[in-house]
Structure formats: structure tokens, C-alpha cells
């Protein structure tokens, strides 16, 4: 199963929290937000939100800017 993570193909994951753990090493990283299919998934939903085949996932954080 594959998903699109931050614009690139990536292996799927059972949940948003699982994906965060693989991507950032933590299941509930601070200062991070997640959108699936163009909708924000609130932090409280990370352990429960599944990621069907082809899900488009954005994981973002704050960087210097503006």
C-alpha cells in the first residue's frame, strides 16, 4: 500500500500516529500538524485516523519565515 506523503510516494501506515512515528520518530510530535486529503486531522484524531491506499498526507511544522 502506498500513500503520497509531502508530495512523494511513501509506504502506507495503519494510522496517522503510526506514520508520524515512522516519519519523525514520535507518535505525537509537538509543533506539527497533519492534513489528509486537504483536511486537517486534529491531534486527538492521530491514533485513530486510518490512511487508505493513495491518501494524500501533508505533515508540516513551523520554519523561519515572514
Amino acid at each position: 500500500m502506498t500513500i503520497v506523503l509531502n508530495g512523494a510516494d511513501a509506504p502506507g501506515a495503519a494510522s496517522v500516529a503510526d506514520l508520524l512515528e515512522r516519519h519523525l520518530g514520535v507518535r505525537e510530535p509537538h509543533g506539527v500538524a497533519v492534513a489528509v486529503g486537504g483536511e486537517v486531522v486534529p491531534r486527538s484524531g492521530w491514533p485513530y485516523r486510518s490512511l487508505p491506499e493513495g491518501s494524500v498526507v501533508e505533515i508540516v511544522t513551523a520554519v523561519q519565515g515572514g
Partner: peptide, 17 residues
Amino acid sequence: VTVSVRRTSAAQEGGLL
């Protein structure tokens, strides 16, 4: 103080927040 929001990457510079 303004900050931008960008995709996370493996090479992320931590510590800003």
C-alpha cells in the same frame, strides 16, 4: 514574531519553536 509553515523533512532544523 512570524513563522512559516512548511512540510517536514528529515533534515529539519529543530529548535525554532
